[in-house]
Design a protein around this nucleic acid. Sequence first.
DNA 1: TATGAATGAGATTTCATTCAT
DNA 2: CATGAATGAAATCTCATTCAT
Lengths: 205, 205, 205, 205
Amino acid sequence: MSINNESRERLIECAKKEFLEKGFAKASLRSICSQAGLTTGAVYFLFKDKNGLLEAVVSQPLNELMQLMGSHLAEEEHTNIAAYSHISGDHDYFADEIVQLLYSHYDEMMILLEKSQGSQFEHLPDRVVEMLDKGYLKTAQLYADAIPGKRVNMYMLHWFSHIQVDAFIHLLTHERDKQKALEKIKPVLDMLVKSWVEYILEDDK
Amino acid sequence: MSINNESRERLIECAKKEFLEKGFAKASLRSICSQAGLTTGAVYFLFKDKNGLLEAVVSQPLNELMQLMGSHLAEEEHTNIAAYSHISGDHDYFADEIVQLLYSHYDEMMILLEKSQGSQFEHLPDRVVEMLDKGYLKTAQLYADAIPGKRVNMYMLHWFSHIQVDAFIHLLTHERDKQKALEKIKPVLDMLVKSWVEYILEDDK
Amino acid sequence: MSINNESRERLIECAKKEFLEKGFAKASLRSICSQAGLTTGAVYFLFKDKNGLLEAVVSQPLNELMQLMGSHLAEEEHTNIAAYSHISGDHDYFADEIVQLLYSHYDEMMILLEKSQGSQFEHLPDRVVEMLDKGYLKTAQLYADAIPGKRVNMYMLHWFSHIQVDAFIHLLTHERDKQKALEKIKPVLDMLVKSWVEYILEDDK
Amino acid sequence: MSINNESRERLIECAKKEFLEKGFAKASLRSICSQAGLTTGAVYFLFKDKNGLLEAVVSQPLNELMQLMGSHLAEEEHTNIAAYSHISGDHDYFADEIVQLLYSHYDEMMILLEKSQGSQFEHLPDRVVEMLDKGYLKTAQLYADAIPGKRVNMYMLHWFSHIQVDAFIHLLTHERDKQKALEKIKPVLDMLVKSWVEYILEDDK
DNA sequence: TATGAATGAGATTTCATTCAT
DNA sequence: CATGAATGAAATCTCATTCAT
């Protein structure tokens, strides 16, 4: 939109570094600005406030992530659990996309998922978990309906969503290389899919 | 020692509340003290400093936790993977003990595991994960040695330790009732044990 | 750089007063700032911290002093002790310059030399003494080499450097008027020069 | 006086150490007391306050010093300047006594003369200088009266008193060994006595 | 477009001192 | 004879934020 983005970009770049190093809460606007060769006032002109600066740093990757999540969950709606074995390929494909996305904006994703304490994104992982919850719930319920005497174990449902998200965060913090990451996440996801099918239902009553 | 611990206890109680609400870093000594009807100086008389106050709040539960971890890992050393199915009872028993402990000091454990950012206990969960790592590594290696063409998948080893710890933290934050917690953690642990056996090894080379 | 230095100057002025009255250690930033009609935060914007404020107060006079010391000691290197009587004029000249300097920044010099306990300049007089020591040592050794059976009395060398510095500090604290100071320091320096020649050597062994 | 002096003595001993290390102002009562195995309250029972504790540490050596000063100054009154050469022995004797005294209570004297900033004894050296001033003034005036066209140079009088005191403090801080101190102070005092006679008078008008 | 100046509220910590017991 | 508890005042410093220019 705006044409003269120089200062804005510089600020975003420096903020990225600072947030990554110290986390949002402990990051100092002064320090960010002086590193960008600007004064703190500039932040309030170019952005809304500290949170606004963070937003500028992470918004694009965040949007992409949300979009990807959305389309994945849309697909999920059409999942037929009877055909689960077949669609494991789909899962692999989704995982691939997620990893691609996470690692093509590595710094931003780290900030978003690990360094945003104190900001508006503090609970982003939880919100993602909730999204998964809702998506998987439908699939699980279809699954349960198909098997008499069984119902969805809500706690397991939540927990599976949680560790799925957690799996990617853990990957991000423990493996910097994208290719290696792609290899490492495979058995994790394989395990998650198989265990999900096995543990998502409990005995009725 | 001293009998009249009124102020000390009051301070600990108020600190517990504040830490729980705001987390260690954002907790205000002023606020804690005024709620306890004391001045901030009292903290420095009765404890060392802010960290000392936190320590007083969580030290006993922490010690018990560490002791339990220690004895669990000592047992683990004698685990025979061939008999893994048999000892799932042991795992249940350990899980029981952990849950008992976590829920008999619910607030303190929440502070310790979720609200201690900025304190000396900031990375306690990571340290626990490391302890598990070391313990499980031996078992896993024995397991790998027994099966030609297989070796320990280190990433999965770490991840299993991580989600085991995570499972208890997740439980703590999502289920306040101890009895219900005991029920809910069962399938989680069952899944972890079985998956561990299934995924801990990878093909050699 | 900036033209509107009002607050900065006011702060420096008030700090000068406070440091002079209470000494650096007991000087209160609050008191300085309120007297300047500002908040303590202003100090940390305009200067680095308390020490930075002191630095702003004394840095220019300090630099001049150091420069003068340097050039004096450079001259001293070329001093021929045999011609000491002749160069007493030089000494007078140097003394003049020192006094001029000390009294053209009276307050700052007082702070620097008498009121800087607890700051980075705490031991400035000692450091000046050391500088003199090194300078005079060379002269003294040439002197000693010229007289068989004599060597430099190191203790006296140190002590002379010490009381030379001390003489100026004493002057500063006991005589506010520059002209009178110039008169008063004369016999002191005369005495120091003559005594130096007489007492700087001791019998060998 | 008091019989149970144990705690008192311990407190005094620990205070001595702390004052010596940190100086009076920065010394912490808490630290002193905890080192003495007592609580701060004890100081206020056994002494008046922080200053009272310092007083207890240094009072005896201080008294001895004052007494010695007094008797020296009393002798000085009878000094005949015409016989100055003869009494240089007296000066040596006095110096001996001073050094003996200073070094037989080394720690206390250091505290008194170098580490008492912020206490009631802060300006003790100045007060001693004043005493010397008064004593030497009489001698100097007799001297002046005997020589027409001369009068006492008051500034030099003060300064000589000052550096005489300073000479002992300098000795104390630069030479821990009493015997060596006795040797080192000799030429200093010799110089002071001779210079005093030479510089104490100035031309009338 | 951004600066430079400054605020105001807050943070933790330290200390000598008091006093009931 | 001394403790243990606590005060209250002060200390330095940090920060996000504001706003006239």
